[in-house]
Design a protein around this nucleic acid. Sequence first.
DNA 1: ATAATATACTAACATATGTTAGCAAAGAAA
DNA 2: TTTCTTTGCTAACATATGTTAGTATATTAT
Lengths: 205, 205
Amino acid sequence: MLVYYLRTMARIKIEKNSSRKDVIVSKAASLFREKGFKAASMRDLAEAVGVEAASLYNHIKSKTELLHELCFGVANRFMQHMDEVESKKTNSITKVEELVRFHINEMVKHYEEVYVSDREWKHLSDPYLSNFQNQRRMYRKRFAAIIETGIRNKEIKLIDAPTAVLIILHAISGIESWHRSTQKINAEELTNNMITILVGGLKNV
Amino acid sequence: MLVYYLRTMARIKIEKNSSRKDVIVSKAASLFREKGFKAASMRDLAEAVGVEAASLYNHIKSKTELLHELCFGVANRFMQHMDEVESKKTNSITKVEELVRFHINEMVKHYEEVYVSDREWKHLSDPYLSNFQNQRRMYRKRFAAIIETGIRNKEIKLIDAPTAVLIILHAISGIESWHRSTQKINAEELTNNMITILVGGLKNV
DNA sequence: ATAATATACTAACATATGTTAGCAAAGAAA
DNA sequence: TTTCTTTGCTAACATATGTTAGTATATTAT
């Protein structure tokens, strides 16, 4: 008896409530994170997805569209959270702490996307590029405003607020190294350490 | 009378005590910083230098060699400084402060190179890649060791030292945003703000 | 002035890359 | 089953890119 092993056509496997495009975007995130946007080719992506490069174009418009989706997905989440925090009636230090916690949490849970949004947005093209840059600027301004309020209320030291924002945001993006580290402490411990250092400082008083 | 405007051959202009290769490496730094290593082409670089792409190869071996030079140039300076700091007989907080000041100073004075070394080393290829990664790991370990000593001496709060290092280094790399900012405070002021926040913390005590 | 070296140019190569066209197969709707 | 839509495949394209070969032209040394 002859048995013919006919190769069936590949198919992108999807989970419930997710499209094939979602799968592609998600794999793109981890590829762009690993190699960088420019160095990651559509053929690489296709292989990761388990399909031929041309097939991807049944689901997406272009490589850049993938970057859009990733960058704005992340940016929107952050913007929305900023709205929430601003509307709360807590003091400034608490707001700062909440923003920091959210950042860390996003970085830990959606590592690849946040990382890509943070490091690869340069490769967006206008009008998306300017749009994205504006959103970032806005976010930082609003963050700085919270710190400035805290300074006026004497909750926070007299420092340059934009510099503080810059430090905080970049410090958090350092979780990248933590994420790759072999001897990771757990996420909660990491968060607490970060809050201690960023909010409380290093010096023992 | 006929006047012939004969185009003379282009030539890479050099300053005293610098080779043509130095000029190329330096221009490469700013290109790689602006566009990223992969997105910056040798033709871009050639144009920046004022010469045809092929001519670059009279001075360099390959595009990757440019990245080597940049990355290891920076790494070596940092390693050497670490040697100096370790050999000093000051307390730990002072050592940390000195390391931070050096970082900021390097970032401000050799912005492009430091930035590239920090963000584009991924595109190195072995054996340079592993070599570079090892150097980084070593540097962070030595930095963490200083902090740990400080913790034992009760100079520094009881925190996870590797996390502290991670925060500090990434916070400093945020100077990139400062560097691009239109309303820069001056470098000294920035440094002091950073030290205040990183070493002293945000909270007003 | 002549020879030797350093540096630049043009042309071309091999390869990688994003993307499209046209067609085949699979799944869903009728 | 038949029809329609979705999703995949192969082949090919245009372009960009790193790099080399071969040659011409400056600059430096003799």
